[in-house]
Nucleic acid binder design. Structure first.
Length: 505
DNA sequence: AAAAAAT
């Protein structure tokens, strides 16, 4: 193992890293930092959770020098707002003790703060394409001196959805510059395309090409489950999983919303993140999940790439992801920095082919998924639930399965009973649309207030909570049911009892 | 086709 000092990293950055317990370098850092530091263009490829951010971040901070003058000299572009926040935090940490200042520029947020920081002379900008182009177009962001450019999740940034924006951004930065592209996945055609934006790049792969792209420390499992049984199986996995956090990926925003509602009703500590939520609610969910206040995150593809949360032990694919790249990034939320993780994928009948392609492309060696579900409750006990947990599954009370039919027949007597007082279908739906994903869970009511206090101060907790998810119903009401949020919280607390995550409690 | 990304 090479030390950071041997890689040419400045002592103050070494100290900053050490203060955070980071003393060992990762292979990608060892391979790219010495090349990147003197200005070599790099395409850096390394597995999920193996230190890519510092791989480009350290040279970037260091190349600006210890006392950079004011004005944007470095630009990092990322595909999602949450990743912008995370990368911003990482790079900001690297600048500790330097006058270098970093700003995150992304949508869904007030312009003022971001513009203010740019005016104050920020040197490093981390952002998402839309807002970057917006501010550049308004002459509020000057990229003409950004000689350092990074595309994080580079293959995503160069795919069809983002490419036009990326081309615009490259038109705004200097032609002579240092360009770094990083990702766990770099398909050949994308590498070819990438060369258009780089000069004599070196493509570094931090692992043996025949080794495969999948993390060896992730254990993969497949269930061929009927969609109506998925909630029940997920609940059982969550119950049996022990300490740690879980990310569940859904294909659609609506499915994410529905699942977070269902799991919250079952007493799990779940929050959601998806594009139909307000940015404030998205960030509140992420903060609660990162801090451990909530231990289940239900997410759409938005959280598939780059997001780094400690102690994620399980990733569950509620539906098979689009392709092997999506699979790799999703399951890469676990098994990070040398830890192990479990990846569970539900394969629907119509996804059998898609799954077979992923299984083969990544050489996962998974057998053909067997039909593991049944409408009969005991058959759940035959499920191969993730390691070390079978005993607990087998002893799970049978009565748990009573809750599954509620999903099948919304509005039934069971449904009304679960709602408690005044539970019409319509009211229930409204409550959920507003609430879930913001605080999500039905207990730990104090957390609702904690999570709605970002730095910089926002409205009082009730309003912040009530704002809920943005465009879901497009309303913007301050209250639902005509009751203030505090009263609603009391009602929910009563309904959900003590907060023990026991289904059927 | 869905999700993401400016308002």
């Amino acid at each position: 193992m090479t030390t950071f000092a041997e890689l040419g990293v400045d002592q103050d950055i070494i100290d900053t890293l050490a203060a955070r317990g980071i003393v060992d370098s990762f292979p990608i850092q060892e391979q790219t930092i010495p090349l990147s530091m003197p200005g070599q263009d790099i395409i850096g490829q390394a597995k999920t959770g193996t230190g890519k951010t510092f791989g480009f971040g350290i040279p970037l901070v260091q190349r600006l020098g210890p006392f950079p003058g004011p004005g944007v000299q470095a630009l990092v572009v990322v595909p999602t707002r949450e990743l912008a926040v995370q990368v911003y935090e990482d790079i900001d940490m690297l600048t500790t003790g330097r006058p270098t200042s970093v700003v995150a520029i992304y949508g869904g947020k007030a312009y003022e703060g971001q513009i203010e920081q740019l005016r104050a002379g920020a040197q490093i900008v981390v952002g998402t394409p839309g807002r970057l182009i917006d501010l550049a177009g308004q002459r509020l962001l000057d990229l003409s001196n950004a000689h350092e450019v990074v595309l994080d999740e580079a293959d995503k940034m160069l795919d069809l959805g983002f490419l036009p924006d990326i081309e615009k951004i490259f038109q705004k930065v200097p032609e002579v510059r240092h360009t770094q592209l990083f990702s766990a996945t770099m398909p050949g055609p994308i590498v070819a395309l990438a060369r258009r934006f780089m000069s004599n790049p070196i493509h570094i792969r931090a692992s043996d090409p025949d080794e495969g792209l999948a993390q060896a420390n992730i254990h993969h499992m497949v269930y061929r489950a009927h969609s109506l049984d998925k909630d029940e199986i997920i609940a059982r996995i969550l119950q049996a999983r022990g300490r740690g956090k879980t990310v569940v990926f859904t294909r659609t925003k609506r499915a994410a919303q529905k699942l977070v509602d269902e799991l919250s009703d079952r007493g799990f500590n779940a929050v959601a993140v998806h594009g139909d939520m307000s940015q404030e609610a998205r960030e509140r969910s992420m903060a609660a999940f990162k801090s451990g206040k909530r231990d289940v995150l239900i997410a759409t593809e938005v959280a598939a790439r780059g997001i780094d949360v400690d102690d994620v032990t399980h990733v569950i694919n509620h539906t098979v992801p689009d392709d092997e790249k999506a699979y790799l990034h999703r399951v890469g939320r676990t098994g990070r920095a040398g830890k192990t993780g479990i990846a569970v994928t539900f394969v629907d009948w119509e996804d059998l082919h898609k799954w077979a392609l992923i299984n083969r492309a990544l050489d996962l060696g998974q057998p053909e998924p067997k039909e593991t579900y049944s409408s009969s409750p005991h058959l759940y006990e035959e499920l191969d639930i993730p390691e070390g947990t079978k005993g607990r599954i087998a002893t799970a009370p049978k009565t748990q399965t009573v809750r599954t039919p509620r999903m099948h027949r919304p509005g039934s007597a069971v449904d009304a009973a679960a709602e408690g007082e005044g539970g019409t279908k319509r009211r229930r739906r409204r409550r959920r649309a507003d609430e879930a994903g913001t605080v999500g869970a039905s207990f730990a009511p104090d957390a609702a207030a904690d999570e709605s206090e970002p730095e910089g101060g926002t409205p009082s907790a009730p309003e912040a909570e009530a704002e809920g998810i943005g465009t879901h119903d497009g309303s913007g009401r301050e209250h639902r049911d005509g009751k203030p949020a505090a009263a609603r919280r009391r009602r929910r607390r009563r309904r959900s009892g003590t907060g023990s995550p026991t289904p059927g409690a």
